[in-house]
């Protein structure tokens, strides 16, 4: 059940590079990453690929397969049209280091700007009590494997390098919602999300949700609720007054 496939792989570093053709065997049940590994082992030992678990759990092998942002370890060869070349290019939104490997520092820098979980003072480890219903909401977002496909796909920064300074991207904003919905977190990050992390840049086109390999409903469950909370805060006169006289600081 093997066949020979043509792979067009982007090779090069920094700005310089081009698609190069490789012809190789494909076996039953294989994913794109298997085929790249075969090319690497047999033809091009220095072909740069970033990967770890090959099981869809670590989020390392993100790239664009025929122009679609995907995890290469979860892209079955039989999901691609047989007989047509398979084009593999690096993530477009991040600078290329070499071949299919990009510099994803942007995502780590933005993540560092979100203040960490802050439990109530005096609550000792072992004393935490939360219901399953209450943790489930944030648990959905903690399924995130940080593959950065959402960050790569979001049109606010894809092809808009200038926006990166002002916009932290869906993954990072989802982290804000995750903490906001954590039953025991005490810190308010809503203003930060709006003013510093660029929540307003998101215009809910759901591109991020479409590419998420964990099937997290990023837009519906994380970004829209965050926008609603921020809007409530900003435009509800009672909350506005409360925040000014500091009696409702932790209001939802």
């Amino acid at each position: 059940m093997s066949y020979t496939a043509l792979f067009r792989i982007w090779r090069g570093d920094k700005g310089e590079g081009s698609l190069q053709d490789y012809s190789t065997q494909v076996n039953e049940g294989e994913v794109v990453l298997d085929v790249l590994h075969r090319i690497q082992a047999e033809q091009e030992n220095d072909l740069a690929i970033r990967w770890n678990c090959k099981a869809g759990k670590c989020g390392s092998c993100s790239a664009e397969v025929n122009g679609k942002p995907r995890l290469m370890c979860l892209t079955r060869m039989n999901s691609l049209p047989e007989g047509e070349p398979v084009t593999i290019t690096p993530l477009r939104t991040f600078p290329v280091i070499r071949d299919l490997v990009t510099d994803v520092t942007y995502n780590y820098v933005k993540a560092r700007e979100v203040p960490a979980f802050r439990p109530p003072e005096g609550l000792k480890p072992g004393e935490y009590r939360m219901t399953q219903e209450d943790v489930s909401r944030s648990q959905e977002f903690r399924k995130c494997i940080e593959c950065f496909l959402c960050q790569n796909t979001c049109h606010a920064v894809r092809d808009h390098e200038e926006n990166k300074k002002y916009f932290a991207g869906p993954r990072v904003l989802m982290r804000v919602t995750e903490l906001d919905m954590h039953p025991l977190d005490t810190l308010d990050r809503q203003e930060l999300a709006q003013e510093e992390l660029g929540l307003g840049y998101c215009n809910i086109t759901k591109c991020c949700t479409q590419v998420c390999p964990e099937h997290i409903k990023i837009t519906d469950n994380a970004l829209i609720p965050l926008k609603e909370r921020v809007a409530d805060r900003k435009y509800d006169p009672l909350l506005w007054l409360g925040s000014k006289i500091k009696v409702r600081k932790d209001a939802d």
């Binding site: 690497q40 030992n45 220095d46 072909l47 740069a48 280091i97 070499r98 071949d99 490997v101």
Partner: peptide, 11 residues
């Protein structure tokens, strides 16, 4: 080892 030192899995 073929290629250079930058992101070279073979090396």
């Amino acid at each position: 080892t073929t290629g250079g030192r930058s992101y070279n899995p073979g090396w």
